Structures are given as structure tokens and as C-alpha cells.
Amino acid sequence: MHPHKTSTPFLFFFVLLIGIHSSSFAQQRKANNKVALNFNHLYFVIDSTALNAINSSDFVTDELVALENRTTEANGQTWTGTYMYGDENYIEFFDSAGLSGIYGTVPKGVGGIAFSVNKVGDLNTLKSQLEKTYTLDTFTRKRNYGKKIVPWFKSLSVKDSIFNSKTLLTSWVMEYKKEYYYHNGFIHQNDSLLRKNYLLDFEEKRKNKIVKRFSGVTLTLNQIETQFYKKWFKSIGYVETHPNQYVSPEGFLISIKSRKPSNSMVIESISFDTSQPTKDQIHYFGKNVSIEIKNNKGVFWFLQN
């Protein structure tokens, strides 16, 4: 079924599932003493036509979302993206014609998901839990602010060179550095470095915008990717609310669908909650991308090849 013409029901009604299973989070984390991992952000590479249309759309920039185009320099690498900010998470789009630097040369359809811990030291605790199952890699990313270099975050990911060289979807866990919060003047108390606090920097831009928070993503994965990520989501404490559906502690829903061999798009849709009652509407951005709002829920659709 064409994704632009028929809204997938679970993207508009997953809140019911989350409510049913919310108590299981507390029980599971208490039993396993797991570190709570929140969805932080995702990136997705789309074609130039769609990205240019998004950036030039009055609806997107004036009504839909707090949007920023910026170039970031870190660890000797640079990348330019389009950023959309919710009140507790964000997404970033990259142009398939010009993406380089941190991700190398990346074709349309590739994506990645970043999770984050909330306190200093949580990443080490998580590492001790996960290294019983995975070989892990950690490093610290430093961000350039002119001539000043500021520790940004510590990253943890699964070290599997064969899988990582073949998958279209990457994933990592972040623990922000105190120096990053100090430099930017973000609110922080004791050892808590919350993602909501650095996103307060965009609170003024979010005023009167439709998007409140990004609430879910539907991934399209091949068999090997599906096996890996189903195990990974369970390993980091996400609850399986339905076959191939996983929900984070704060209620971000990750759904998995099968990707056809001819398809190179790893994300089918990204859903969001609205901050205010909004009329049903749909907007198209080239041949591959649309934004649909229905029943005060919104979806970015990405047409599969």
C-alpha cells in the first residue's frame, strides 16, 4: 500500500500500547537493574530535491517545527545537516548529494539512531552489562567552537566490523560531558545531564510550532539487521509491546518492517506528537517525502524504492 495514501494505524494509536505496558518498564528495570536509555535523535539521508523542498517550505519553517541548518566540526571532521527539534529529542536530515566527513560518502536511505543515558557514569555501568553479550567500542567526541575544543560526549557502540560494513542502519549510545554543558550554559544538577535541558536552547524557536516531540520511527530492515536490532533493543531494556515493536522508557516507539532487496531506504516513517490541535493535512516534498497530520498526530513518510 502506498505510504502517502494510507496511514499505518499503529503510528496514530501506539499511545494505547505504551499505556498498557508502562508498568512493565519499572518492573523490568528493577529486576535487571538496567540503565535507562532514552531515544536521543536519529539521522536519515534523503535526496537533494526533498531536502531543498523541506528547507524552503514556509509550512515547515513557519508552522511545523523548530528548524536549523548548521555545519558541525568535531574530531577533525565536518558535516552539514538540517535539524528539527522537539522538546525531548530531535532528528537530522542529510543531503545524499553532499554528505561527507563523519559518515564518509553515504547514499540516500542510510540512517542511524542515537540513544543517551542521563547521568555521568551510566555509560560505564551500561558497558559492564552489555560486554557480557557484545564486543563494544567507546570513544570521546570533541566539538569545535571556533578555536576552542570542548569535550562533547562519550559514545558506546557494538564493535562488529563485518555487520557495520554491511548494514544501512547504525546505532550508538551517548553520555554527554559536563564540559559541554558548562560551555553552553545548559542546566545541569549534580551528575544529571538530561537531553531535555540542552534542547531548552531551542524553546523559543519551538513556540507555536506544531511538532511537540518525535514519538516513533518505522525501520525497514533486512533479515540480518532485524535479528541484530531485535536483540539489541531487548539488551538495552526496551519493551516489546507487539511483535517487532519496541518502546523506550519515555514512550518512543520503534517498529520494524521487512525491507525488500530492491529497497535502499532504512526508514519508512518518523512520527511526532503535536503541541496543539491541528487540522488534517498532507504536504509533499518531491517524489519521496511527505508530511501527513491526522487526528492530531503527524508522520514523515518516505516513499520506498
Rank of each mutant, 00 (worst) to 15 (best):
2 H>S: 14
9 P>W: 00
11 L>Y: 05
21 H>F: 15
29 R>N: 12
30 K>S: 15
32 N>K: 12
34 K>S: 13
43 Y>Q: 01
46 I>M: 01
46 I>Q: 00
47 D>P: 06
66 A>E: 03
71 T>Q: 10
73 E>A: 15
76 G>S: 07
91 I>H: 03
93 F>C: 02
97 A>I: 02
99 L>T: 13
104 G>F: 08
104 G>H: 10
108 K>H: 05
118 N>Y: 04
119 K>D: 09
127 K>L: 10
132 K>Q: 14
140 T>I: 14
144 N>P: 03
146 G>M: 07
151 P>G: 06
154 K>S: 10
157 S>Y: 01
167 T>H: 02
169 L>G: 01
169 L>H: 03
169 L>Y: 00
172 W>M: 08
172 W>K: 06
173 V>M: 06
175 E>Q: 15
177 K>F: 02
186 F>V: 06
191 D>F: 07
196 K>I: 13
200 L>A: 11
210 I>H: 00
214 F>Y: 15
222 N>W: 02
223 Q>N: 12
223 Q>K: 11
230 K>R: 14
231 K>C: 07
233 F>N: 03
238 Y>I: 04
242 H>F: 15
249 P>Q: 02
254 I>G: 00
262 S>M: 06
263 N>C: 14
271 S>R: 04
272 F>H: 09
272 F>I: 13
273 D>G: 03
281 Q>W: 04
289 V>N: 01
292 E>T: 14
294 K>N: 14
296 N>L: 08
299 V>A: 10
300 F>T: 02
300 F>S: 00
301 W>R: 08
305 N>L: 10
